[in-house]
Each structure stands twice: as C-alpha cells, then as structure tokens.
Design a binder for these strands. Structure first.
Lengths: 158, 158
DNA sequence: ACCCATAACTGCGGAATCCGTTAGATCGGA
DNA sequence: TCCGATCTAACGGATTCCGCAGTTATGGGT
C-alpha cells in the first residue's frame, strides 16, 4: 500500500490527524463520533484515519503504567558508547524483550536505552552478559530507577 | 474513597488486574467482554476494575507516538545533579509542560528527565533558563535525540 | 486542460458494545 | 453478626462499532 511520506521517508501527518492524535492522547477510548465532532470529520472518516495511523505505526493506543508503582521489577536507563556503526547495536538491543526504549542521541552517550527487569540479578545479567558483550559496545553506564515522578504522553496538547 | 495499599502506600494490584492491564497494553480499545473472557471475569467486573485502575491513576489508556516521527519538535534526555533534597527540584520539573518524564535514579545523575521542545532555541531556553537556574541544581548534561528506535509498553506480557 | 486512478469522505443499517442498574451470592474485617 | 466490597447474571436502552456503497477530492500523466 502507498503511504505518503516526506523527504525523510517519515509518514506525513496533516493537522487533522494531529488533532485526532491529541484527542486520543487525552483518552485512548474516546468514541470516533466524539472525535469527529471535535476535529470536523465524520465518524467513518475518523475511524479510517485512526486505523491507518495504527497500521503505519505512527501511533498506538495502549495502557501505560509505572512498573514500580504496580509493585515489581527493576528498571534502569543505560547509556551506551559504541565504536563504528550504531545501527547493528541498536538493532540487537531493539530485539531484546527487556529493552523498552532505544534512542540514538547526540552527547556523551551514543545510545540511551531503558530496560525493565525482574530483579537485580536479572538487571546485572542483562547489562553484563547481553549488552556489554554486543560487538561494537565500548562502554556502558547504568542509572537504576528509584522513583518515577512523572510520565505523560500529551505533547501537542498545549 | 478507600483504596487498598501495601505497606509502601502504593495501590495493591492482584494478578487479575495485572492480566487486564496486559490485555489493554496489547490493545487499549479491546472490548470489556473480550478482556473478561481472557482473564476469567464477567464483562461488568472488568468494566469496574478498569474504571478503578483509571481512577486510582494506576493505569492510563492513551495514544502514544514518536514526536520526531510525527515530524516536529526537538527532544532530549537531561541528566541532572542536585545538592540537598531532590524532591523540590523534582517537583519543579514535574510542573513544567515541556517535561514529559522525571525519574530519580541511583548513578552519576540524581535525576533523569525527558523534555520535548519546539526547536533548538526552545530547548536551549529550557535547559539554560529554567532548569539550570532551579535552586539546588548543581549541573546538567544533555542528550539530544537523533532517532527513536524502539518504544514499547508491553512489560508483563512475556 | 483533460482524464483517470486512487485516496478520502459521507451516509446508512445491522451488529456489537457500552453502561447503568437490578438482585443475589460470597468473603473478610470490625 | 453486621457491613462493605466484589463478583455473577441478566436486563434494556443508548451508544458505538464496522462494513459497504456511493460520492467527492486529489494528484499525476499526457
């Protein structure tokens, strides 16, 4: 299927789809008809656009929680320095279930990743046996989470 | 209203609510009846539990996106070192709209925050004028996002 | 400017879901 | 024992979902 993209190959989102996303950032279960009324589209049109945004991977509608609040698991941010091409390392990390978040950055780390583990042993295993042994990984630095204070998803709604 | 809590004051979640959350992590719009069938509860009971989880703030159902993919804004992770009590600094950061994520960590940063800005100017303003000037902030280090590679919310589903 | 193909939108009707509400059963704590 | 919380089962009406047919808009290509 054809997907409109800009010059960087990223899907292009118009202001209407943006408005739909904002509605769903406030409430992921908001009815299509209510969204349509808010953005000036028919219910069916909203439904089609939401489906396409989901199919394209631009947006996902999910329940989010704070794992620590829910009462289990050990979480950490890990800064990683790599020699050579970043992509293979990022690919390998992305494939790991325990890794929730992978971002390439400009700064004193090449990659920042967030990992969620069962306990301290699991965390140690991940960092020591699976991440630090990846070819190209030069060094890592870990930041174990003590308390999550804020977590929002409402950018664009301000 | 009374809310059951464990000895740390965090809401207690039993395995059934956990299973409901997992269902909604896969699809935030999944019908209550389908969830009930999956977790062994009636539709009405699922509805009540979901409502309570939302009311308690244990879970939220939202659309999530990658702001960079959507085509705008400048994002960064900022590591912060503080002298003295962390709480007032964390509180001040939490109150800022541009700050999406605030976590207290053990490691070479006391706080890690994620910020979303309009552009480079806005980012510079935030870091230089609003964050580094907070009383107690000793130093900051910024990691500007180049590319988000992975972002999942399905912990507990493995 | 014209035509065509495709995408996008509207309107509609039937099926499914949502949601408030009953009544009764069960369990644990004060 | 009594009270509150939670669950099931079963409604019924309002709402929502969803596929489809038909129409309009859009963007090349000539």
């Amino acid at each position: 299927m054809f997907v409109a993209t800009d010059k960087n190959g990223t899907p292009s989102i118009d202001s209407v789809s943006l408005a739909i996303i904002e509605q769903l950032q406030e409430d992921g279960r908001r009815p299509y008809a209510a969204i349509g009324k808010a953005v000036g589209l028919s219910e069916a049109a909203v439904r089609q656009r939401v489906q396409k945004l989901l199919d394209q991977g631009v947006m996902q509608i999910v329940a989010v929680t704070d794992p620590l609040t829910v009462g289990f698991r050990r979480q950490a941010m890990v800064g990683i320095n790599v020699e050579g091409d970043l992509d293979p390392v990022a690919d390998a990390l992305t494939a790991m279930d325990e890794v929730e978040y992978v971002v390439m950055t400009a700064g004193s780390f090449d990659l920042l990743i967030e990992i969620v583990c069962e306990d301290d042993d699991h965390l140690l295993q991940m960092i020591n046996k699976r991440i630090r042994t990846l070819p190209g990984v030069r060094s890592t630095e870990s930041f174990v989470y003590l308390k999550l204070r804020k977590q929002t998803y409402t950018w664009g709604t301000r």
